[in-house]
Design a binder for these strands. Sequence first.
DNA 1: CCATTGATTGAATGAGCATTCAGTGAAATT
DNA 2: AATTTCACTGAATGCTCATTCAATCAATGG
Lengths: 214, 214
Amino acid sequence: MTATTRKSDKEKKPRTAPAEVRRAQLIDATITCISKYGISGTTLTGVTKEAGLSLGLVNFHFKSKDALLTETLNTLAAEHRDLWMKAIERDDLGAADKLTAIVEAQFHPRICSRKKLAVWFAFFGEAGHRKSYREHSSRFDIERQEICAGLCRQIIVEGAYTGPDPEGISMTMEAMFDGFWLNMLMYPATFTGKAAVAQVRTYLATLFPGHFNV
Amino acid sequence: MTATTRKSDKEKKPRTAPAEVRRAQLIDATITCISKYGISGTTLTGVTKEAGLSLGLVNFHFKSKDALLTETLNTLAAEHRDLWMKAIERDDLGAADKLTAIVEAQFHPRICSRKKLAVWFAFFGEAGHRKSYREHSSRFDIERQEICAGLCRQIIVEGAYTGPDPEGISMTMEAMFDGFWLNMLMYPATFTGKAAVAQVRTYLATLFPGHFNV
DNA sequence: CCATTGATTGAATGAGCATTCAGTGAAATT
DNA sequence: AATTTCACTGAATGCTCATTCAATCAATGG
């Protein structure tokens, strides 16, 4: 049907593609491989096979295997950060709505599919001895935690709540985020994203009954 | 000073030791290595060097490297389970005390030193693709979660609390346990075991004001 | 003492893997 | 059409590592 006209059909994959496309393909394949085989079981041969590309391409587009892994982590982190950041940028939202948006982003299916959770925890597993993983991760985590604390502070003022300490609450929220993630990875039958959101909102409703209803 | 009398000084390490001792030595060394280099960076050469034993001993006392890793995980899990189980076995404790004991065991220094946390998360990182790790871990986790739910149920009856759902609370506690562990590993300066216990107790005090005081 | 048993040693083996690089081929430029 | 450029290929290289095993050594029993 189609001749060699390259305009009409984008399905014809050309032998060569822009670097950005290749890098994205390789990062995608890396996510798939890590989720299937873990970081230690992820080989460049496996990644390139998964991506349908040839072995040498990784070291052509990335400095090393290590660089590929780091960029994979950064990609996941940026995707997550984008999602909650976009969600709270709207000026018409109140503090409680923004807090809810952050919670919902944390458990959004795009962010915490089993596949991606497996990758996150594969990296957390290495983070114990790899400062670089910890440092990158931490920037976004600290940012989010501070924003949550700020929102809590605002809610406390609005509702004239006594007792709750915004830093403690944001620390606890952070722990609940990671903890539900781990439990969703380990026991997907018992722990779901919807249930996690509900539990965190229940927690917030207990603290701020005037701002959240379960 | 000391001659070759083997009675008085137990410091003289004999060339040979009972299998249980060697196994324990190797498991200890494995914990150290994993915390330093991660699971992928842990080699039998490294483990035996750390233990001051010779390379071949691992495959003499364990079926394989994999068996060594599995038994290391089991050892950690059993140590933790023993601690909280012993703590709640006393009949004179009320439900709230037992719940507190479980929380304190979770963040006991012996259980969640940075070193051991690094090992736990190294295993969690592999758990995504290794059913065997998930399965073993899960037995104790589910057991603990059910006991927590039972204790909550008892507290709810005692205090005639309305609203809180024991299963939800125990799920949230489980998430807080794991989440604080991860944050203690990643940000030891911000997250400490003491603070984690305090936060969990604050959570419980909000739910059960008659049973817990912050 | 000698023999036997069982723990211990570490060199040798072989498999797996990241990385390199000389070469291929297709597009872009002349 | 010839040349240059650049993405791409995959065999070859050299290293690391788990596992094996023949030899060693110490204790125990005869």
